[in-house]
Design a protein around this nucleic acid. Structure first.
Length: 462
RNA sequence: GGCCCCAUCGUCUAGCGGUCAGGAUCCAUGGUUUUCAUCCAUGUUACAGGAGUUCAAUUCUCCUUGGGGUCACCA
């Protein structure tokens, strides 16, 4: 069974890059009928917070990416880690190092001065003597030397590292006894049964260290997939500075989960020429072997296009519900269907839809000067007045077609073109020169409001 | 700096020795629309450079260049 996981450290919100690897992991597990697990890496008490962990969980909930099983919190697993540290100590695969931080710093300075790689020199590796007083030791693992470590990566291929180039006896437990990242990752992934690790390729250089741990503990090494980074427009790793990297900001901006997920799944992954993927299609088509090797630049133009696409293809019922998050209650509006049909193909986001709707529903108080100048001709007042009168005398006006017929009648009677009434009427109804079809707008706001708006416009502009 | 990764239109990408180098987005133009948006059509734009292998390289190898990542008692 394929078991994948997402393992964020709760130092902040869930960001775009993290979400993409989480999505990949989720899809791969689902495709194989496996499990997608969640682990909160909260061992750094100074930087982690419960709020951040909750925020991440909330984002997953919004997106509908449900995890399997219980969430694992590393902060609650001290005994487990201690047990494996002790095991390595007993087996003499790890040892206590009494070097002080000052001594370590000194060693590094010397190495840098000699243009050597900074590394621990292994001075306590086989230490048998009396422990120095007043020093709490760290635990270091005996890392292999003179060997080659191969990371068999499903995205990058086999990546070879020379142990002597990159390894030293690195710390697996701090002076206060707490285990370090590379150690707990290996232990937890094994204990949780994770056998396929999909993560950012910034972890690629950590992987040999984790392999050292796996081997020391006698664990099976999982399959790795290192996914390329998402870069900002400067070509650098996407960071909090780049703005709009918090997943929940996309909710506030009016994007739906389906649009965001579809956008993200195509960033660094593709399936032929297909651009639109429902969740079901993602699950059936996703395969990490098709993940790109190169980094991609984060650019949201396509997200807008996808978002517009999904909005256009959403049912009015769904939209009305979604829109309630944007301070717009349409559920009881009797012209809801007409309204939503009119605006859903004019907006890129839910937020825009809400704004557009409010624009239509609100009586315009100001009229765009340029629009007035362009639309209001000498005979406009006469035409609008005549139309207003016609509406007053009409009794059954409900559908856009009713209003359209009324307009048609008027232009026929007066022997004028459609533009003669259309242009000034649009400005009167909406205060500007562009917008949805006039018949639709009038049907939505109704006869009385239409007459009122025409009157307002005539009062203000003639 | 050491180590590692990467390199096709502006952007997301297809390609897996022989293609008019395809799609999407963006942009531009035209059509539809009384307007705007939608929609439809058309168009501009790419294999980083240099060697090699081969009858044939975007595709394989090497080098150069460029970009990125990582080098903690952080994760």
């Amino acid at each position: 069974m394929v078991v994948t996981r997402f393992a964020p450290s709760p130092t902040g919100y869930l960001h775009i890059g993290g979400l993409r690897t989480a999505l990949f992991s989720y899809l791969w597990a689902k495709k194989n009928g496996g499990k997608f697990l969640l682990r909160i890496e909260d061992t750094d008490k100074a930087r982690n917070s419960q709020e951040a962990a909750d925020a991440i969980l909330k984002a997953f909930e919004w997106l509908g990416l449900t995890h399997d099983g219980e969430i694992v919190y590393q902060s609650q697993r001290d005994e487990i880690y201690a047990k494996y540290i002790k095991q390595l100590l007993d087996e003499k695969k790890a040892y206590k190092c009494y070097m002080s931080k000052e001594e370590l710093a000194e060693l590094r300075e010397g190495q840098m001065a000699n243009k050597q790689r900074t590394m621990y020199d292994g001075r306590y590796r086989d230490f048998e003597g009396e422990a120095p007083e007043g020093i709490e030791p760290v635990i270091r693992i005996k890392a292999p030397q003179n060997t080659e470590i191969i990371v068999r990566d499903g995205v990058k291929g086999d990546v070879k590292f020379q142990a002597n180039d990159i390894l030293d006896d690195f710390v697996i437990a701090r002076a206060d006894g707490s285990p370090t990242y590379n150690f707990v990752v290996a232990v937890d992934d094994h204990l949780m049964g994770v056998n396929e690790v999909i993560r950012g390729d910034d972890h690629l250089s950590n992987t040999p260290k984790q392999i050292v741990i796996y081997e020391a503990l006698g664990f099976n090494i999982p399959k790795f997939y290192h996914v390329p980074m998402i870069h900002n427009s400067e070509g650098k790793k996407l960071s909090k500075r780049d703005g709009a990297t918090d997943v929940m900001e996309y909710k506030n901006m009016g994007y739906t989960p389906e649009a965001l997920l579809n956008f993200l799944v195509r960033l660094g992954w593709s399936h032929g020429d297909q651009e639109i993927f429902s969740m079901d299609e993602m699950v059936t088509h996703f395969n990490p072997k098709d993940i790109n090797k190169s980094a991609s630049i984060y650019n949201t133009q396509k997200l807008d296009w996808l978002s517009a696409h999904y909005l256009k293809n959403s049912s009015n019922k769904e939209l009305a519900e979604l829109l309630s998050e944007f301070d717009l209650s349409l559920t009881s509006h009797d012209k809801k269907e007409i309204l939503l049909d009119a605006i859903k193909e004019r907006a890129k986001t839910l937020k825009e839809m809400a704004e557009l709707t409010k624009e239509i529903l609100a009586t315009p108080l100001v009229f765009d000067e340029k629009a007035v100048k362009k639309a209001f001709k000498e005979d406009s007042a006469e035409v609008l007045s005549a139309f207003s009168l016609k509406l007053q005398n009409a009794d059954e006006l409900h559908l856009p077609s009713d209003y359209h017929d009324a307009m048609q009648e008027l232009v026929d009677e007066m022997g004028i073109g459609f533009g003669k009434i259309g242009q000034p009427l649009r400005v009167a109804l909406l205060g500007k020169a562009s917008g949805p079809g006039l018949d639709v707008v009038m049907a939505i706001i109704g006869k009385t409001e239409t007459i009122l708006r025409i009157k307002n416009a005539l009062d203000a502009n003639t």
